[in-house]
Design a protein around this nucleic acid. Sequence first.
DNA 1: GGATCGAACTTTAGTGTTGAAGTCTTCAAG
DNA 2: CTTGAAGACTTCAACACTAAAGTTCGATCC
Lengths: 188, 188
Amino acid sequence: MSDNPERSGPQAPQEPSLDEQIAAYQREFRDLDPQVEKVVSALGRLNRRMNVAYGRQLADLGISNAEWEVLKTLVLAGEPYRLGPGELAKRLGLTPAAMTHRIDRMAGEGLVTRDRDENNRVRVIVELTDEGRSKWLEAMRMATDFEEELLQDLTSDERGVLGEVLIRLLRRVELTQPDAGGRLTDLD
Amino acid sequence: MSDNPERSGPQAPQEPSLDEQIAAYQREFRDLDPQVEKVVSALGRLNRRMNVAYGRQLADLGISNAEWEVLKTLVLAGEPYRLGPGELAKRLGLTPAAMTHRIDRMAGEGLVTRDRDENNRVRVIVELTDEGRSKWLEAMRMATDFEEELLQDLTSDERGVLGEVLIRLLRRVELTQPDAGGRLTDLD
DNA sequence: GGATCGAACTTTAGTGTTGAAGTCTTCAAG
DNA sequence: CTTGAAGACTTCAACACTAAAGTTCGATCC
């Protein structure tokens, strides 16, 4: 029972402590495995906190979480950092309509350009600008610094094990919930 | 660099495999620790997948992720399952305005009631109905079944360790990002 | 070579959220 | 008692997203 993760909004929710919450669940719902609940709750809570943190840092750079996602996707596509709106929408899990508007904004801010494909005038090509790429770089530096800091208390062994366990869980979810064609889907 | 978690929407994004993604990041960004990146990416991806799964199951019950959050919060408040809109908004991390509308809907669906406090007519009391409570119960059963299934490949030891590690990370985030008054904030 | 189908994107209508302004009640002064 | 100030919620305007309808270009068929 994880909270809605889509909220990387302004303020973090003010919630009871994890232990209090689990105790409350046990009170209201008899057959609850506290160990499972602890893992699931911590996972969700951690994620929400991290997203609030990312959102703040990105805001300092003058970009939104949504824009950051688009920049990331274009960079991951590799040189020459071009994708069509439809492809972007698919990779981001958005509708094409939402993509149109998001690209409008980002083109207005100079983060990307939007042009007709000369070879096929139905298609549109979205391309990262130099400014977009350097914003991505700045954001990436902030993100990796934050992530290093987050994991600083874990030994290298612990990090390795944690990564492996999470990937096992990810595989399990993808088995249970065949969404994305069976590939391990993105996360960062 | 986690994706925006607030999207528990309809379709999961179609992303490259985790390994492909990390390889691409290393190509574009030299000083990246693959181990850290793996943990962070898996964490975010897992969370998004889980939220899509929750969203689907809740949709089968006829409630949205947003409604589920409200039901959870009221149940966690304990008997008599009453809270004001302001308090609900705080616990859910929403603005009071959003809360007003959400309560409108849910009251219309019979999941909660909304009444003026007789002792202080400025205040409003939102109370879970029997229907709301039973929806919560159904959802809770589905959620816990899903969570058991998710963790089925992990031994009890592994679950315990995973929970502890996640809580350490949660503490670290809360140190770094003083949002919620220093308490371990909610997650499920 | 004109009609039809399909693909790729945009536009429109409806929903949900935020931030700011507004309303109503209570409490405290004068 | 009436004025002022604060608190709790609601309303309003703006924005972002979804689902569905619309537009435009390209390819295929006859």
